[in-house]
Amino acid sequence: MREKLRVAAYAVVVRDGQLLLARSPVPGGAPEWVLPGGGMEHGEDPYDTVRREVEEETGYRIEVTGLLGVNSSRRTLPGGRLSRPVDHHGVRLVYEGRITGGELRNEIGGSTELAAWQPLDAVPELVRIRLVDIALRLWRERPAVGRVAERAEG
């Protein structure tokens, strides 16, 4: 089994009761809403990663106003016909950000297809990745340890 570590940085940006999200296409499935952010490039500081990714995916420039926490997840991805299964470990740094400039726009040729503000109370009804819920809990609860216990899925 191959091992893969992916470190990424994401932003929770809330303004006027709305959360900034990006929508990611899913091959053969419904698009999912995600936090703006993504993988670090080699040698890049995560602080710079989150600022770069938010601008790429939404058009906005942000000021990072705090580190909300870190989420770590591990899962086994199946191998293909010519590849072995992968033990994937994702480490995701979740920052809080504030818009300082730019204009809302969709990403072109990237991992997302749409950027939009979503009312906080509508987020539970969206098709979204689990990290959105984890990040919102970090934002709301602001745990001293920078981590929230994940709820069992049922």
Rank of each mutant, 00 (worst) to 15 (best):
R105F: 01
L82C: 12
A116V: 03
L114D: 02
R105H: 06
E41Y: 12
V127P: 02
P78F: 05
W117R: 05
E141P: 00
R81D: 14
L68D: 04
H42V: 15
S72M: 14
E150L: 11
D48Q: 14
V13I: 15
E103P: 04
L114G: 06
N71E: 15
V13Y: 10
E125Y: 08
L68I: 09
E150D: 10
R84S: 04
S73L: 09
V94F: 01
G69R: 01
R81N: 13
L5E: 15
A144D: 12
V127C: 02
V54E: 11
V91K: 10
L68P: 01
L67D: 03
L114Y: 04
G38P: 03
T49W: 02
R23E: 08
E41V: 14
D48H: 12
L136N: 02
M40I: 13
T49D: 05
G102P: 00
D16G: 13
K4R: 13
K4A: 10
P124V: 07
Y95P: 01
A144R: 13
R51T: 07
I134Y: 11
A116K: 06
P85K: 14
W117L: 02
L131S: 06
L82V: 15
V34A: 07
L126E: 06
P119I: 03
W33H: 13
R15W: 10
